[in-house]
Design a protein around this nucleic acid. Structure first.
Length: 456
RNA sequence: UCCUCGAUAGCUCAGCGGUAGAGCAUCCGGCUGUUAACCGGAGGGUCGUAGGUUCGAAUCCUACUCGGGGAGCCA
């Protein structure tokens, strides 16, 4: 019985395909997001069946094409028996071309519906794994290649794309030049334990952990630069804030102090949030983001010193002492006092990277800052003013037992026209997670690389 | 590396020492406004793997495998 039904459907599909091809090809195909501009016109929508509901006399087809969702209504009295039979036999995620009249309807979430006239099935799907009911994380990640078809994941990827667009727009408008640092590197800037090792013919090479040092060179060549690319960390981190492969934006600015860098950072974040609030209302609603909470991200952001943060934590009952680095619970406790992103600046020199410039008034701290996102999303920016003095940098290399020969080129930057300069790294996925209000960064990237997951 | 939780139908889970269960999905039937549609029926299982305890193990114990959450580290 199953088999006969299947053959019947396939014959029908073949027949309909021949029957309607000429007429459909003469009609205009329209993206779902533009249907509102075609009221009362007959159009073709090319997409997939998201879900279907049907009764004996009417079938409701939820269609998607990547740009949006629209309901196609096939009424038994309005279409041929063949088309109606085809409509009721359609399966989830079958690919199809639907011909119909665009009509206004207040019952539709987008305000329009498609009155179906004809259907052309390109491929009839069987047993699509992701059903409209709930699924577990493991199952969904194993089916990530299909999971991204869903409305929630589509919205997140759309917002990610708009965030990227906003970042580029902001930096390009302020005379930054994009410069691409290498992905294959001879060694790291901060230890090799977290680096992905690979072969470079007969030598060792590592996947980049940060393009920063190269960007310092680029800033001396082009003034204001930024990189935008993937970063790899072989850390055995398994939390909602960590990916093995993630994307970073690393601006680097010549003739720029720590304070000027902070100004740019907060304006950038404000611009991103404003852009997403302007362009992505539909997507933000689709994923259930608390929009008023996002609207709080207006510059200037609070700037507190490491000293003040320690005091604040001690007053909250934490046993942390000056000189210790913050753990995740500390960051969460600090952020709880604010509803906006907050800068923590001037950390102890001893716990920060070798290239950070000491505060001239207090050499025990460096001119650096972390920007913590609100609502517990953790550090989204880390930045600093860099050491511009050749002698000091040389002594830092010695203190950190770094191989000076490998970094001769980096030392050169302090030999030939050294200037005060600053830069920062913005973690894309954590920013997307915060703006989307997600539980986990794994949903912010199309194909997440996680500690125990390299598939698909 | 450490702590902690988990693995039972295609999916989500219940069952916690005595005949393997539910909802959804699938298939069949019904329904002209559904929004995770609804109503009736059917099929569907080596209870993660290997040992052990017991008259009897999905259930208790041990080891292993795979995964979730978290710590450290970091964006």
């Amino acid at each position: 019985m199953h088999c006969r039904r299947f053959l019947f459907t396939m014959n029908l599909v073949f027949y309909m395909h021949k029957f309607v091809r000429r007429r459909i090809s003469m009609l205009q195909s329209v993206l779902i997001q533009h249907l509102g501009q075609h009221i009362d016109e007959t159009v073709v929508v090319q997409g997939w069946l998201h879900t279907k509901r049907s009764s004996g006399k009417v079938a409701f087809l939820q269609l998607r094409d990547g740009t949006g969702f629209v309901q196609g209504v096939a009424a038994k009295t309005e279409v041929s028996d063949d088309v109606f039979a085809l409509a009721t036999s359609l399966t989830q995620e079958s690919s199809l071309r639907v011909t119909g009249v665009v009509v206004k309807d207040d019952r539709a979430p987008s305000g329009v519906e498609l009155q179906v006239q004809n259907l052309e099935v390109l491929h009839l799907t069987h047993d699509y794994p992701i059903t409209p009911k709930e699924h577990g994380v493991d199952f969904l990640l194993d089916h990530r290649h299909l999971w991204i078809r869903g409305p929630r994941q589509r919205s997140i990827l759309k917002i990610r794309a708009e965030i990227i667009k906003a970042i580029r727009q902001f930096l390009d408008d302020r005379d930054f030049t994009q410069v691409d640092p290498p992905i294959l590197t001879p060694s790291s800037c901060e230890g090799t334990t977290n680096l992905f090792h690979t072969q470079y013919f007969d030598r060792d090479a590592y996947l980049t952990q940060s393009g920063q040092l190269y960007m310092e060179a680029a800033a001396m060549a082009l003034g204001r630069v930024y990189s935008f690319g993937p970063t790899f960390r072989a850390e055995k981190s398994k939390t909602r804030r960590h990916l093995i492969e993630f994307w970073m934006i690393e601006p680097e600015m010549a003739y720029t102090t720590h304070e000027e860098s902070l100004d740019i950072q907060e304006q950038l974040i404000q611009h991103i949030v404003h852009h997403v609030l302007t362009k992505c209302q539909v997507e933000l609603k689709a994923i259930g983001r608390d929009i008023p909470a996002l609207e709080n991200a207006i510059a200037p952001f609070p700037r507190i010193s490491y000293d003040e943060a320690i005091e604040l934590l001690q007053n909250d009952g934490h046993s942390i002492q000056w000189g210790e680095d913050f753990g995740a619970p500390h960051e969460a406790a600090i952020v709880e006092h604010y509803s906006r992103p907050v800068f923590i600046e001037r950390f102890p020199t001893s716990i920060k990277a070798f290239y950070m410039k000491p505060d001239p008034d207090r050499p025990e701290v460096v001119l650096c800052a972390d920007l913590l996102a609100p609502e517990g999303y953790g550090e989204i920016i880390g930045g600093s003013q860099r050491i511009d003095d050749a002698e000091l940098l040389a002594s830092r290399f010695a203190e950190h037992e770094l191989p000076a020969e490998a970094y001769a080129w980096y030392m050169d930057l302090r030999q030939y026209g050294s200037v005060p300069h600053s830069g920062f790294g913005l973690g894309l996925e954590r920013t997307v997670a915060w703006i989307c209000g997600l539980e986990h960064v794994r949903e912010t990237i199309p194909f997440p690389r996680l500690l125990y997951r390299l598939y698909p």
